[in-house]
Design a protein around this nucleic acid. Structure first.
Lengths: 335, 335
DNA sequence: TGACATTGTCGAAGCGTTTCGACAAAACTG
DNA sequence: CAGTTTTGTCGAAACGCTTCGACAATGTCA
C-alpha cells in the first residue's frame, strides 16, 4: 500500500505539505503542488479511509435505512434506492444499505461505530422509532416521509394531503359524486405508513366537504386483488362514476384489464385517476390522468438535506412537494 | 464518544486487557472479563471502525457491484440485492452498494481507499472488466455469473448449459419436435450477459442433437412484447407444440394472458416450460413447469466465497448449481 | 524444593491521516 | 531600511485500536 509518507519522500517534501496540498487548507507553492500531483498519479496514491476517519474526517459514507415489507412493491422500492444512491454519488458519497430486519438495529450498528456520516431513512411511519434513535446517536439524518415530531431532522415528501384534496377537487369539479378508491395493501395502514394516513385523512375530509361519497377497497399483492377490488366497487356502489388509484402498478394494470374485459370504456363509462403513482402513467394500457410520485426529486432532496446536516448548516428545512397533475384524458365530465 | 480508554479506566485495567477481552486472542481472567463486559454495556462502548481499520482489522464492509440496465427487470435485481445483503449480515458484514454507472469505477474508488474487505459482482458478462480490476487492486472478490477466465476468483451461477440441456431433453422426451423460445430483451445478448450465451449455445446444441427445431424471439420490456412474441411464434411456426420461457415475469404473464385470449389451453394446445425463472412459477395465472433460478442460494454462496477469500482460505471453489426441475403440469405429451 | 510452564496483565509501538504551532524566507509597509 | 505581514514548509501530537514483548504470579513436575 502506498501511503502519504511515500508520496512525501518521493516528492521531497514533508507529510504535512502533501496533506495540505491535497486538502487545500493552506497555501502551497505552485511547483511543489505540481510535483506532488505528479508523484500521486505516478504512485497511484489513495488515502486510507480508516486513517482519515480516525483523524476526524468525513467517511463519505451514508447509510440508507430501507425497510421492505412483505407486501411492498419491489420496483418502487428499487427506484427509491437507486435514486438515493445516484444523489449520494453527486455529493461524492457512497451508500451502505440497511435492508429489512436490520433497518433500525443497523443504524445503531453502523452509526455507533463512526463508520457513516449520516442516515437517510425511507419507508417512514408516523412516530418512526428511527427518529429518537438518530437523536440518541447524535447522527445527522433525513427522512423520506414524515417521522412524527421532528423539528430537529429534515424530511421530504410529496404533500399527500394536498394530493388528496386536489384529486377530490378535480373529480368534484367534473361532476363526480360517488367515487371509489383502490388503496395500497392494508398492511400499509396497519403499520402506520405516514403517507397513507395523510392521504386518506385529507381525502375523506375533502370528500365530506364536497358532499362526495367515497368507498375504499384495499388491494393486496396477490394475483387477482386489483380485479377483485374494481369488481367490488363497480358491482356494489351505486352511481359510481370514478375510481381513484392509490396503489401500485400491478393492481392498476389488473383493474384496467378487468375494465376492458367487462367492456367498460375509460373515461366514458368510468373515470380513472391515479394519485401519487410510483410508476409511469403514460405507459399503461390505458394511460391515466393523475399525480405522479416525484421519486427522484424526493431522494435528491433527502440526500441534500442530510449533506447539509453533515456540514452543520444549521436549520434543516423540510419540504412537502407540491403535487403535479398531468391530464391524460382518463377523467370525463359528469355535469 | 466513549473509547476503549474509558472502558479501561472504568474497569481498572489496561487498554490492552480490554482489547484482548474483546477479541479473545489471549486468555483473560474470568472476573476481569465480567467486569469489562459490565462496563462496556454500562458506557455503551462501540469500537471506532476507523481505528480498527487503521490497526489492520477487517472493515466488515463489502461492496456489491450491481449494474442495472435500462432493460433490466427491477424485481429480479432487487431480489439479488436483498439476498446478498441478507447473506452478508449473516457474516456480520454490511454492504456498500455500487449501482449503475458506477459499478466499475466504484470498485476502484472504495477498493483503493481500503474501505472494504471484498467485492461481490453481479450482472456478470463474458470477459467482465471487473475481473482484471480486482486483480489489479488485489481485492478479494466473487462473481454471480462467470467472468471469463477466472481461476483466481470464485464464481457461482446456475448451470445454464445444463438447464438448457435438461429443458430440451424433457420436451424431447415428451415428443416435442418444434419448440419456440421467448428470450430476454436482446440487449442482454448484445452486452454479452454470460448466462444468455451459455443457455442459448447449449440449447441450440441439444436441439440440433435431437433433431428439434428451435425458433427464438427476444422480448423487450415494453408493453405488448410478450404478447407479440407468443403471437409470432404461434402464427409463424408450423407444428409448434411447446414454448420455452427464458425471460422475466411480465413477458410470461402477457404471453399467458394472450393464450387465454386466443382460447388456447395449456398444456393441451400448447406446452409451456420456464427455464431459469427469477419469479414464482407457482403463482402465475397458469403455473408453469420448469427450472427456477435459485437466487437465494446463488447470493449466499457468492458471499460465502468472498468471505473465504477475505479469510485467506486458499482455493476459491466455483460452483455451477444444478438445475432443479419442478413439474406443474404445463407440458403435455406429444408422442 | 528448585526448575520450568502457564496464566493474566501491562506498556508501548505502530497503523495513515489531519492539524496546530513554529519558523524561515519573501513580500510588503511607512 | 527596520518592522510587519504573508507565504510556504516542517515537525510532532493526536485520533482509537491491535499486538508484540515483558513480566509477575501461580501452578506443575521430577
Amino acid at each position: 500500500m502506498v501511503t502519504i509518507k511515500d508520496v512525501a519522500r518521493e516528492a521531497g517534501v514533508s507529510i504535512s505539505t502533501v496533506s495540505y496540498a491535497l486538502s487545500g487548507k493552506r497555501s502551497i507553492g505552485e511547483k511543489t503542488r505540481q510535483r506532488i500531483a505528479e508523484v500521486i498519479t505516478e504512485l497511484d496514491y489513495n488515502p486510507h479511509l480508516g486513517a482519515k476517519m480516525l483523524a476526524g474526517e468525513r467517511t463519505h459514507l451514508i447509510a440508507l435505512s430501507a425497510p421492505l415489507h412483505e407486501d411492498g412493491h419491489l420496483p418502487t422500492h428499487m427506484r427509491f434506492v437507486t435514486e438515493v444512491i445516484r444523489a449520494a454519488r453527486r455529493h461524492d458519497y457512497d451508500v451502505v444499505m440497511l435492508a429489512t430486519d436490520d433497518e433500525v438495529r443497523g443504524i445503531r450498528r453502523v452509526g455507533s461505530s463512526s463508520i457513516i456520516d449520516g442516515v437517510v431513512s425511507m419507508g417512514v411511519t408516523t412516530d418512526d422509532e428511527r427518529l429518537s434513535l438518530l437523536r440518541e446517536l447524535k447522527l445527522p439524518g433525513s427522512f423520506i416521509g414524515i417521522p412524527g415530531e421532528s423539528a430537529d431532522f429534515p424530511y421530504v415528501d410529496l404533500d399527500f394531503a394536498a394530493a388528496a384534496r386536489q384529486t377530490v377537487q378535480r373529480l368534484a369539479d367534473q361532476g363526480h359524486r360517488s367515487i371509489g378508491l383502490i388503496g395500497h395493501p392494508f398492511g400499509y395502514v396497519h403499520r402506520h405508513s405516514g403517507f397513507i394516513e395523510r392521504f386518506d385523512h385529507a381525502l375523506r375530509a375533502a370528500a365530506s366537504n364536497q358532499g362526495i361519497r367515497i368507498d375504499v377497497r384495499w388491494a393486496g399483492l396477490d394475483r387477482g386483488a386489483g380485479k377483485q377490488a374494481i369488481d367490488e366497487l363497480i358491482d356494489n356502489i351505486p352511481d359510481l362514476t370514478a375510481v381513484i388509484f392509490h396503489c401500485n402498478e400491478p393492481v392498476v394494470e389488473e383493474a384496467e384489464r378487468r375494465l376492458v374485459e367487462r367492456g367498460l370504456n375509460v373515461p366514458e363509462d368510468l373515470s380513472l385517476f391515479a394519485a401519487a403513482a410510483s410508476y409511469d402513467l403514460a405507459q399503461l394500457e390505458i394511460p391515466l390522468s393523475g399525480i405522479a410520485l416525484p421519486i427522484e426529486q424526493m431522494c435528491a432532496q433527502a440526500v441534500d438535506s442530510v449533506m447539509q446536516c453533515i456540514d452543520q448548516i444549521p436549520v434543516p428545512t423540510s419540504t412537502l412537494l407540491e403535487p403535479q397533475f398531468v391530464n391524460r384524458g382518463s377523467v370525463a365530465d359528469h355535469l
